[in-house]
Each structure stands twice: as structure tokens, then as C-alpha cells.
Design a protein around this nucleic acid. Structure first.
Lengths: 152, 152
DNA sequence: ACGGATCATTGAAAAAGTCAACGATTGTTT
DNA sequence: AAACAATCGTTGACTTTTTCAATGATCCGT
């Protein structure tokens, strides 16, 4: 992620036409956001991705690892590592798939839900900081647009 | 970036509250977008990042490598590699900084601008594809929100 | 002129990503 | 029902990317 400047710059390069390149805007906002998010989650031994896995494990949706991989745009082997870590720490456990015995369903433990609640609260503060320049409405709007772009 | 499913899924996991997590939304949209963008840019021997560098080199803003690093959220050493590559291919050249002789200013060559124009056109098509679910207005809106979130 | 800071660059170490292969299981075809 | 191909999680190897400290050159403040 390169240089960790938490400072808010007003870079002259933003003038360039590149400032309209959605790809770059996403990359940059994602980069700075990840930095802040990971910093906020570090208190709970989590990172953006393990937090996402934990969130889905807590969701009641009983995701399989394959679903997690697809949803989080990760390689299945990366999910193995993430779940291994969370499982070793007792935040999550693997259960056998219901119709498919090959699949493993990831569910949260009580401790996992406890940690998740705390981490989620911290992240919300973090997100608000990151999107401080946006009004409440704009914040909601941004979420809606991103979701729509992703799955219509 | 893990599994390259170009297919548009309607994942049941999106139901989870995690679907409102800006961090995840950015990560996911950025991931799928990068995949498409890099694929589109491959015809020109470029990737998202080298394209960004080339764009800024073509902008007339005469960015230094340090500015590129800051703006693109990269480590300075990564910029060295990117510029090396572009320079070896004659798309860009390093010029001496005007007030600061330590700094190197990155400027495009004629060939660089030629390639850039073609690549930019390809990318625009690509972006439109990626954001196909959004109307013209929403597309503009998204850009504006991202820019505002980044630099007020 | 001196000392500390910043620039681009290098190279090494750590982390992340990619990919093919495997056993177990599933669904499908014959 | 037997054979077949496909899918799931997992492992391990391999490549790419990221991170970081060190360096020479240059700048800036004193």
C-alpha cells in the first residue's frame, strides 16, 4: 500500500483527466480505506478480509468456503488460510455441508460474535472518518451506487 | 485477484449486512474492475498502474516520481519499476526536475501519447461495461462521490 | 559550511497471489 | 450400478507484489 499518509492531501495531480478514471478512484479510495480499516481492526487481531469472513460467518447465511471465495473475490486457498486462522482462535468453526458433504459451512462461535460486534463498531467509526467529506445522504448514495454497480 | 468470473452472479451472500460495508464494496468493485481493465490494457502492453503513470505523464502536469507514488498510493520503488518499463519501451522519459535536481519529472513521448490515446479509448469501453448497471447520471454521480470522498 | 531532510534507486525480505494436483464426494451417463 | 467427469477443500510450489532499510545526490535551514 506504499506510503501511509493519513494526512489529507490536496494533490495537484488530481487535476488531470485521470481524476475521472473510475478504476483509479476505486483503487485509491480502496487503498487508503484498507489502511485505515486494517489499523482499526488490528486491535482485534483482524484484517479487512478476516473481518469479512467473520461477518459472513456471523450472518446466519452459513456460507461454504467456495461461496466465500466467490463473494470475496479470493482464491479458494486463500479462504483456507483465513478460516484456519479464525478457527484456531476459536472465532469460527467448520461444519459439514448439509446437502454436500464435500463443502464446509463456516459458522461463528459465541466468542466470534463477541469479537465481531466490537470490531464492527470500530470499523463504523473508521468508515465515517474516511468518508467524512460526504454528507449522510451522499454516504448512503455511494453505498447504493456501489451495490448497484456490483449486482444491478 | 482469485477466480476470474466474468459472469454476473447474484450471490446470496450479498444479503448479509456486509453488503453495506463500504470497504468490501470498494474491494470487490475494484477487484472485478481491475481484472477487466488489465485485460483490456493487455493489448497495449499496459496494466492499470502503468496506464495511470502514462496518463499522468501525458497530462502536461510534469509529475515527479514522488508525486506519482503519493498520488497512486504506491511505494517509490514501485514507481521506479513502472517508469523503467515505460521508458524502456519509449513511451515516457525521465527529465530533470526544474527547481529540484534530485527529482525526476516524467513526461510522455509522442509514441507514448499515441499508445495512451488508444488505450484510453479501450478503457472507456471497458468502464462502461463494468458500470453497465448504472445509468449515465448514476455513473457521473459515482465518479463525483468518489472524488469528493477522496479530496473533499 | 554544516546537519538534517528528501529524492530516486537498489536489493533483500516478507507477504500475497496464482496454479496445478490430490482425496473425498457429488451428479451424470451409460 | 458402474464408470465418468465435475466440484469441494486442501496442500505445496511457484510467481508476483509489497514492504523496508540503505545509499548517493541534492536541497534547505541555520
Amino acid at each position: 500500500m506504499g506510503p501511509q499518509s493519513t494526512e489529507v492531501e490536496t494533490p495537484r495531480l488530481a487535476e488531470a483527466k485521470i481524476g475521472n478514471d473510475v478504476g483509479l478512484l476505486l483503487a485509491k479510495l480502496h487503498a487508503t480505506g484498507s489502511l485505515l480499516n486494517n489499523k482499526a481492526l488490528a486491535d482485534y487481531g483482524l484484517r479487512e478480509r478476516s473481518f469479512s469472513v467473520l461477518t459472513l460467518a456471523c450472518s446466519g447465511l452459513e456460507p461454504t468456503q467456495r461461496e466465500l471465495a466467490d463473494f470475496l473475490s479470493l482464491d479458494p486457498s486463500q479462504v483456507v488460510s483465513l478460516v484456519d486462522d479464525l478457527e484456531h482462535r476459536g472465532l469460527v468453526k467448520r461444519a459439514q455441508g448439509k446437502q454436500d458433504r464435500r463443502a464446509k459451512i463456516i459458522v461463528s462461535t459465541a466468542e466470534g460474535r463477541r469479537i465481531h460486534n466490537k470490531a464492527r463498531a470500530a470499523l463504523e467509526v473508521c468508515e465515517q472518518t474516511q468518508l467524512a467529506a460526504l454528507s449522510e445522504d451522499e454516504n448512503t448514495q455511494l453505498r447504493a451506487l456501489l451495490k448497484k454497480a456490483l449486482w444491478g
